[in-house]
Amino acid sequence: MANKRVAILMSTYNGEDYLGEQIESIIKQSYHDWHLYIRDDGSKDQTPAIIEKYAKQDERITFFNKDNVKNKGITRSFMDLLSHVDADFYMFSDQDDYWKEDKVLHSLNKMLEQNYQSEPICVHTDLQIVDADLHGSEIMNGDYIWHDFPHLLFCNCVTGCTMLINQQLKNILHFDRINYDQIYLHDWWIALVAAAFGKVVYLEEATILYRQHGNNVVGENEKNTLGHLLYRVTHQVPEREHMRRVVRIAHELDTIYGKKLPGLDYQYVHHYGNLIYDGNPLHNLKLGIKLPPQRMTPKGKFFFTYLMMLYNSDLKNIAKE
């Protein structure tokens, strides 16, 4: 365990309310060989001052872009950190959660059980959902989890603030080739690359208090209840946007990795990615039958295919954006 350097990458934006608490939870980690790199994404509040205060107090904390603060968006911000920092392993931190004291230690132990020196590995954990005051005991994932590439393509269950990745995974992310407008969030992209070329490993332990306060970039996962399904049928705008995100990220994976992807994975990204160029309702129906959208229920698979048929123009318009 000695000398395993863990880089913790945090992106902040107007996070003054909870940032101090989050940094304190990292400082209190039972594993000490970490370095926290914080990149501010153009905050207008006291966030930069809070970062500077902690950087002066602890040499393991660096204000990554102190002299070059500008807004890039959350995905570019995290990927910029990851591409420029060197360590043995890498973790991602939001600005408003609270890490349990063994988060780094237990994630690292899980990583060291794997063939991490030669295989791309992504370890992720469960989360405990809490309110703004850190009260709550609900567990987010439980056994509602999947790690195969096709399922992750259609629905990501790997939450960035629980991830630990190794150098072998970082080496194949191709930062300089990614069109960041197409991949939505860094954790989804990283999880897909890990699933395709290595392994995604789950630690069924809540290592983080996942704060829900109304301003989260990504919040709690919805479960497949009847009420939620009815809501999805009657409120299709977010469902249509998710469909476009799937097609965009599939196209980007096809552009960068192409036939280097394993057989079935390549078939999915190639055929779904090509929906931005061609397709019609009948074509999309045939695709949904030949390569079914990998949702967790038959209803979900049918619903995604239904959206591809009904809103075919949404997909073809992606190429024009």
Rank of each mutant, 00 (worst) to 15 (best):
Y98H: 14
W99T: 06
D102Q: 11
V104N: 05
V104G: 05
V104F: 14
H106T: 13
H106A: 00
S107E: 11
S107C: 13
S107V: 09
N109G: 08
K110E: 14
L112I: 02
E113H: 10
Q114Y: 13
Q114H: 11
N115W: 09
Q117E: 15
E119D: 14
P120I: 01
I121E: 07
C122G: 02
C122Y: 03
V123K: 02
V123H: 07
V123D: 04
T125P: 06
L127K: 12
V130P: 06
V130N: 09
D131L: 08
A132Q: 15
A132G: 15
D133I: 13
L134W: 15
H135I: 15
E138Y: 07
I139T: 06
M140K: 07
N141L: 11
N141T: 11
N141C: 07
G142C: 00
G142E: 03
I145F: 09
I145P: 01
W146N: 02
H147F: 15
H147M: 12
D148Y: 10
P150C: 06
H151K: 02
L152T: 05
L152D: 00
F154K: 00
V158R: 01
V158Y: 02
G160Y: 12
T162M: 03
T162F: 07
T162W: 14
M163C: 11
L164T: 02
L164E: 06
L169H: 14
K170F: 09
N171I: 03
I172L: 07
L173T: 04
F175C: 08
F175T: 11
F175M: 04
R177Y: 14
I178N: 09
I178Q: 07
I178R: 00
Y180W: 12
Y180M: 10
Q182K: 08
I183C: 01
I183A: 01
Y184L: 09
Y184N: 10
L185C: 12
D187T: 02
D187I: 00
D187W: 05
V193F: 03
V193A: 05
F197K: 05
V200N: 12
V200K: 03
V201W: 04
V201I: 03
V201F: 02
L203R: 03
E205N: 11
E205I: 11
I208V: 10
L209I: 08
Y210R: 00
R211E: 11
R211S: 13
